[in-house]
Design a protein around this nucleic acid. Structure first.
Lengths: 236, 236
DNA sequence: TACCTGATTTGTACGCCGTACAAAGAACCG
DNA sequence: CGGTTCTTTGTACGGCGTACAAATCAGGTA
């Protein structure tokens, strides 16, 4: 074992672990995206603010590690089963990601500007490419499609947390819809006829139903292409 | 005229306009998303920091106004022409928005968490709904589709600015692709076979070409639905 | 004309933030 | 034991958004 090979370092044992710091940051984030300051995290784990810098080089590293950890919580088994229809696997992946990330709205705010290139992010991309390859997309289309899906998933999350704007805790979906309904009906209908007509639907934008609706339209667009290409190839 | 009806206020004439403040903020944003501090803006327009609060209640209002102003710069004529094919109108809208917003990467960072419910945002939504209605979507589908498109456009922008991470000025597209190419080839190919194979495509993710590719897949998904529904309605 | 009144601008200050730096403390080695 | 090395802390700097009271300015009114 190489792990027993490396001796314990010279100094005092560390009082914390990286994970305890991330735990603290994550729980603080439930009080708003700005609540996870270095000072607050340090206070939460009972240590001086600058002790954090023994574990992470700067705050951006804490954020990156936090995002990576959330991505690591995604259960791959749900959509790694190649016996399942590929569409359901993509939907399962999208729902898993949304569930794990929107559970921490503050963290979603933080991932904007995070690198998203950690090993867990790569693993998820790889899984997605796998599913799309199983769907019959050639490697180039699969790559493009995976980015399209990531944009959709990530964009939905960002718009969703922007909508609830660091209110805490996250209100229930039905309550959020009602709030938006009110906001829409306050608009001048004479200048925005389509918007007024679509108010009820638009109030329900931010919902799992709309999320899946959009996802399915995208999947249809991806496979329409495959179908077209298969047709054009013809008797091959 | 009601404008001549309101008399000039009592005090000294204002030294600035809201627009000058937004100009200053916008030019500062080109030096990074954090460069547009209230103090920096005030210094830029030659005024004490707290004078800004005579024009805007707080910094969030400045950001909202800035985003609204950028949305107002979008040229509606390009996609308001109902004689044009609706697909091209949607593409023109998407390209206009991307062009106007990604010209100010710092501002895109700021719009995350902005309300996006100003009159210009509403006008764009209305236009989008109009185009989708012209495409033959019923009001409900048009509403859902417009949100899907907004998520895509906005998500693409957010991921794009996250990729260049406040580097300034924005590097050329070819250079960004080369940088990403390097990053991808540094990954362990044995654990991520699909990712490795798709590296070249993925390096080119962030490009106008990929942006349009995804957009067209979405439009195909939306119209595949319309086509299906028309078929199922049958002889009607 | 001179004063009053109300809007604008400024000076100062508070409490945060991320984090650099040097000193102090703790565990291991010889 | 002393020395070495790592962790933790105290203190401090510069910057942030913004609250508050004083000063300044330009009307309207007497």
């Amino acid at each position: 074992m190489s792990e027993s090979g490396r001796r314990r370092p010279r100094g005092p044992r560390r009082a914390l672990t990286e994970n305890e710091i991330l735990d603290a940051a994550l729980s603080l984030l439930d009080h708003g995206p700005d609540a996870a300051s270095v000072r607050a995290i340090a206070a939460r784990v009972g240590v001086a603010p600058n002790a954090i810098y023994t574990y992470f080089p700067d705050k951006a590293a804490v954020v990156n590690a936090l995002v990576e950890r959330l991505l690591g919580e995604v259960d791959h088994d749900v959509f790694a089963d190649r016996a399942q229809p590929w569409r359901e696997r993509v939907e399962a992946l999208a729902l898993e990601l949304r569930a794990k990330l929107s559970a921490h709205p503050g963290a979603v705010s933080l991932m904007v500007g995070s690198r998203l290139d950690g090993s867990n992010a790569q693993a998820l991309t790889e899984r997605l490419l796998q599913v799309l390859a199983d769907a019959g997309l050639d490697p180039t289309d699969a790559a493009r499609a995976s980015y399209l899906l990531i944009v959709y998933i990530f964009g939905s999350l960002v718009l969703e947390v922007a909508d609830v704007q660091h209110k805490v805790p996250l209100p229930a979906e039905s309550e959020r819809i009602a709030t938006r309904q009110l906001a829409f009906s306050a608009r001048p209908p004479e200048h925005f006829p389509h918007s007024a007509a679509a108010a009820a639907t638009m109030a329900g934008y931010i919902s799992t139903e709309q999320y899946l609706w959009g996802l399915r339209r995208i999947l249809e667009g991806l496979t329409a292409r495959v179908a077209m290409e298969r047709e054009s190839v013809g008797s091959d």
